[in-house]
Amino acid sequence: MIERPAVRVQSLRKAFDVPVRQPGLKASIGALFKRETREVVAVDELNFEVGAGEVVGFLGPNGAGKTTSLKMLAGLLHPTSGTAEVLGFTPWQRQPAYLRKMALIMGNRNQLQWDLPVLDSFELVRSIYRLPRQQFTDTRDEMIALLELGALVDKPVRNLSLGERMKAEIAGALLHLPAVLFLDEPTIGLDITMQKRIRTFVAEYNRKQGATVLLTSHYMADVQALCKRVIVIDHGTVLFDGGLQRLADEFGSTKTIVARLDVADGEKLDTYGRSATNRGDGTWSIQVTRSEVAEVTGRLLAEQAVVDLTIEDPPIEDVIERVFSRGSTPA
């Protein structure tokens, strides 16, 4: 039996009518009588599926249509055309049963009660989502422990730092234990430690709840730590949909061989691959094309006193950039 995907998107399109007006008084008066608009297509014929329990990175440059897509899947926006199904619901019908099963967390969002201690906001969440007292208390305490919120929950939200507030926001958004989680830049503006803690928490939540997660982030560390699969979009359409490794394989044209030698000999290593850089302490980085990897590695091992050798993919940022610049899925 084929398992039903948690998220299914078919030919989804969202276009906005944006008012346009030429500068100057004449145009301004003209606009009183005839309002001109221009259609801006944010999402265009988007198609993908996400299996239950999957964590998928949803990547793209600014203006690619990521947030618009997530907002449609969360039921905030009605699409211009196309269909989407999340957990069997049509998101923009905004049925309470659906809203009780999903969460959209945006990095710049503040849903907590500004003037009240975090715990009071959590109590409100309990009443909104009709959570049984015991389940709520247990989940809340566990979230507080996992996100190290203990010292913060009795402070008014306005007194929390950005990172502290984000942690509290995430805890508040997950108290009803959503089965589908849309994360839009959840670590934006946070320091490295806080980013790491949130990543760990999301991974833990996915593992224990079996929740489906669709994540957008400009921090590739988020994507690498959480997602086995990525969907890359630009101009509202899918450019790539597959595993992170496949992305590197298909779009990363080069690899880096890092070799540590017993005796450093820069002259000789220059003849390997496209370029070689001495990192010091006898360690060299050699850029090679993918087809050259086996041959260059073989030569290195045969001709040099290699103590250690690793083969690295190019940084994921470079790969993604290559996807954007190419603008289509490779054949």
């Binding site: 049963a97 009780r100 009709r130 049984p132 389940q135 989940t139 009803h176 234990l177 833990e204 709840q209």
Partner: peptide, 14 residues
């Protein structure tokens, strides 16, 4: 971590 109720818990549904 606590596991969600199978039907996600609205009392009215039960």
């Amino acid at each position: 971590m606590i596991t969600a109720e199978p039907a996600s818990g609205p009392i009215a549904e039960t």
